[in-house]
Design a protein around this nucleic acid. Structure first.
Lengths: 155, 155
DNA sequence: GCATCTGAGTTGGACATTCAAACTCAGGAG
DNA sequence: CTCCTGAGTTTGAATGTCCAACTCAGATGC
C-alpha cells in the first residue's frame, strides 16, 4: 500500500510540526533551553511582537512543553517565569538536528555561530541517525516505512 | 557573556527554522521523502491549498532543497516532478527527530502510526544525541554553548 | 479541425494571523 | 499620591492563508 493512501495528519511528524511549525515557536523553545526565562527577555532577544509571544507561550504551556512558574525575588512582587518541562527538554534532539543542518548548509563565511559541547568531556554534540542494530544511517542509506497499529487510511 | 547578548537570528537553528518554519513546508519535505513527487499528488495527499503548495515548492527550489525536474512518459507531454536535492535529503535527521518526539509524546492509544526501518537489516531507525567522544547525551545531560567565529553580538 | 481531458498552476475575495505601538494593571519606590 | 517596571492586552493596518473558479498547453477522441 503506497504511503499516499495513509492519512497525512496521522503522523508523528505532522503532529509535532503542528506544535513547532511556525516561525517563532522553535526559537522560543531554543531560548528557553539557553536559560532565557522571562517574558521581557524573550521579547527583547527574539524581537517577537508581545502579543504573539503571549500566544506562543500559552500554546507551549497548553501542550505541556513549558511550565509557567511563579517566582519571587526578595522584596519584589511575585513574577512569572517559563521553564521547559520534561517533554520540552526532550526536544533538544530536534533543535540539535536543526542546528547541525544549518551549520552544514547555511553557515556564513565565518563558519557556524556556536558549538554545543558536552559539559563533562568538552566534545561537540551532534545528532546521529542510527538503527537499533547499531548501523549508522547516512543520507544515502535506504530506509523503509512500515505502518503500525496507529496508522489510519485516508477518508 | 550570556546567550542573550548574541544575535538571535545569527543561529543555525534560526536559519533552518526560517525555511522549515511553517505548518506546511516540513510536510511537503516529508512527502517528497516518501516518494510523492507530483504537484497534484502532493496537493491531494496533504490537503494543502494549491497556491500555497506552489509557493512552498518555489521556496524549496529557491533554497536548493528541491529540484524541479522535467520528465516525460512515453506518448504523454512533458511534466514536472519535484525531487529532493542532497541538502534536502540531509533533512532526514530533522524529520526523524520530529517523528521520535511525536512517537513518544503525541502517539494515540494505538501507538505510533509508522516505523522507519533500515532496509538492510530491518531494525528501527532513531535519532541519537552523541558527543564526538562517543558519550550518549540524554535530556538531563548538561551541555554548554560556546560562541565561535560565526557569532555576532546584538546590535 | 474541434471539443474534451488532465496536469499544473493563477487569480480573486473572504478569512485569519502578525506586527508595532499604545494602553492597562498591579505592586513597590520615592 | 505619583512614578516606574514587569507583564501582558488591545487595536488597526499589513500580510498570509484558504477555497473555488479560472487559465493554459499539450494529448486524445471523433
Amino acid at each position: 500500500m503506497p504511503w499516499s493512501d495513509y492519512d497525512s495528519s496521522t503522523c508523528s511528524i505532522a503532529r509535532t510540526a503542528q506544535i513547532l511549525g511556525d516561525r517563532w515557536t522553535v526559537l522560543v523553545v531554543r531560548d528557553l533551553f539557553n536559560g532565557v526565562r522571562r517574558f521581557d527577555e524573550l521579547q527583547d532577544h527574539l524581537g517577537i511582537a508581545r502579543d504573539i509571544l503571549t500566544k506562543r507561550l500559552a500554546l507551549l504551556v497548553d501542550e505541556d512543553l513549558v511550565e509557567r512558574r511563579v517566582y519571587q525575588v526578595e522584596g519584589a512582587r511575585a513574577r512569572h517565569e517559563y521553564v521547559l518541562t520534561q517533554a520540552g527538554r526532550e526536544l533538544r534532539t530536534v533543535l540539535v538536528a536543526l542546528m547541525d543542518w544549518g551549520d552544514h548548509h547555511r553557515a556564513g563565511p565565518a563558519g557556524p555561530p556556536v558549538s554545543l559541547q558536552h559539559k563533562d568531556c568538552g566534545a561537540e554534540i551532534h545528532t546521529h541517525l542510527v538503527c537499533d542494530a547499531g548501523h549508522e544511517i547516512d543520507p544515502s542509506t535506504r530506509a523503509e516505512l512500515n505502518p503500525l497499529a496507529g496508522a489510519r487510511l485516508r477518508s
